[in-house]
Simulated assay, not measured.
Amino acid sequence: MSLSLRSLLVLGALPFATLLACPARSPSSGGTQPEPVRIPSGCESSQAGEYHHVGNPAFRYVAEDDGRTLSLTVVSARLDGGVGGSPDAGGINLVLSRTPQGFVGETRATGFNVSGNPCPVKFPTEVTACADDSLKLRTVTSTALDEACRPPPSGAPPKWTEQVLRRGAPDAGVPDAGMP
């Protein structure tokens, strides 16, 4: 074999040797990448802290945020606008998660059926905006309940309402506007 033919064989084998020297790719887990989390701008940072309802400052909230889930608990509000020192165990809680479908979750509360008996209720809720000084929420605010504490099979569609929570204590002298 001549030197030129040997050189051609070596040069021809280089691409195969390069492929053999490349590390093997590890198989991906599940074969697909997880969907990206889609949340409003500004909601990536922690929303932990104290808030009050803009429409009714007597309703104050304590928010805990672990980076994935935001939990807001209504702190006991009195008719005179005062606030109790601890969360009301039978009160209202909002639990929202940062997901590919948005910053979504539910409001958990106690409602009453047509007979006046207490019933646990859950309303769909979502965060629509986060700012340094506020949170904007969109939530269903009411539903009818039958004797078994279930929504009736037919009836009016749920009514969605925007709620705004402002960070910190309300300004002094702001009157109570009723239920949020």
Rank of each mutant, 00 (worst) to 15 (best):
S86Q: 12
Y61H: 10
G30R: 09
P34S: 12
V37Y: 05
V104S: 06
Q47S: 05
A89R: 14
P40C: 06
Y51P: 02
D88L: 14
P27F: 04
S45L: 04
L14E: 03
E64N: 08
V54F: 07
G55K: 14
E44W: 04
L14C: 13
T32M: 08
P57I: 09
P36G: 11
P87I: 08
L5Y: 03
E44A: 15
V83H: 13
G91W: 06
V121H: 04
R25H: 03
E64C: 00
G102Q: 07
A89K: 14
G90C: 12
T32K: 11
G55N: 12
P40G: 05
P34C: 00
D65V: 00
G67L: 12
G55M: 07
N113W: 03
L3S: 13
G84M: 06
L8K: 12
Y61M: 08
V54Y: 03
P57Q: 11
A17L: 15
V37F: 03
V54N: 07
V95T: 15
P23Q: 11
G102P: 10
E64R: 13
A48K: 02
T69R: 14
S26N: 04
Q101C: 00
C43T: 02
D80R: 13
A17K: 02
R25Y: 02
G105Y: 10
V95Y: 05
T18M: 13
V114K: 14
I39Y: 00
D65L: 01
D66W: 09
G90K: 14
N113C: 00
A24I: 07
C43R: 00
D65H: 04
R108S: 08
P23N: 11
V121Q: 04
G82W: 08
G90E: 15
L20A: 15
P100D: 12
C43M: 01
G67H: 08
V95F: 04
P36L: 11
H52P: 06
F16E: 01
V62D: 03
E50Y: 13
S7V: 03
P120F: 03
F59V: 01
F112Q: 13
V95E: 07
D80M: 12
V62M: 06
C22F: 15
S7T: 10
Y61G: 00
S26P: 01
S115G: 14
V121Y: 00
F59K: 06
T69H: 06
R6Q: 12
N117G: 13
S71N: 09
